[in-house]
Every structure is written in structure tokens, then in C-alpha cells.
Amino acid sequence: MTKRIVACFGEAEKGEAVLEAGRKYAALLGAELVIVHVQTTLTGMTGYYERLFHEELDEIERIFGGPGKDELLTARRYFQGAGQLPHFKLISGDVLAELLKELDNGDYLLAVVGARPDGSLGRTAEGLIRRSPADVLVAKGQPADGRTRPQE
């Protein structure tokens, strides 16, 4: 069975810490690294309008480069020149629910998630710690200034 680690990549301020921790632990455990980015779907009134006009809004994102492009491009750039590229996955929905679903179905050893810039745990990190079937590693947030880029 393939050993796998999932790195939950989201907001820029904690993103690179997550990627770095994912890369390090995947190398340490000899595991395959999967980078997951969950695109939030909104609830309430905005969610209603978003569902109503989702095709048009997707079209805008396509014109400007595709949904989730920013996050996954940042992640790809991060791993450029660092040997084998990890797997990238783009999912839409509620961040915590989708990550738990991925962990339930994906047979993962470890989930890497980011802390807030002040070091506290956000809803996603807290939810994963409480409910994830895999162990959870919280990477402390650092500004994404490119200084932590891995050197092979």
C-alpha cells in the first residue's frame, strides 16, 4: 500500500509553511505527498447567488486563468526544482467537510494543516484535529515571502 501525506494548502500567509512541512515529512516517511486545495463554496445569501450564477462566475475564473489557479500555481512553483512534483487536487465545497472526506477516502498517514498567522488554530485545523482519521500536523504560519523555498 502506498504511504500518503496530505498537505491542506489554502491561504497565502500559512501556505508555504504547510508545503514545507508536507515536503519534509513526506521525504522523512518515504511517503507520497498530495497537495489539496479546497475552494470554498459560500452559504447564505451569497451562496444562493453564487449557485444561481455559478456557470457565469466559473467562466470569469476560466477567462482569468481557471478556478484555484492561484493556489495551485503557487504550490507548483514552490516545488519547481525540488525533484519529483507532488500530486495536486482541487476540490470545491466546505473546507473542513471536504478535507475530512478526502482523509476518510484517501488512506493517509498524516494531514498537514496551517495555523493562523498568530499561531492559533482556525476552524479547519481544530476540526481536523478532532475528527481526522489520520494524525494531524499543524505547521505554524509564516509570511509567504519565498525564503522557505526548499533547496535540494
Binding site: T46, Y49, E50, F53, E56, L57, I60, E61, I63, F64
Partner: peptide
Amino acid sequence: LFFATLTFE
């Protein structure tokens, strides 16, 4: 809804 998204992009 459209202009916020377009302006962001």
C-alpha cells in the same frame, strides 16, 4: 456579484 469577482481578478 459580477463586478466584485471581475474587479478581484
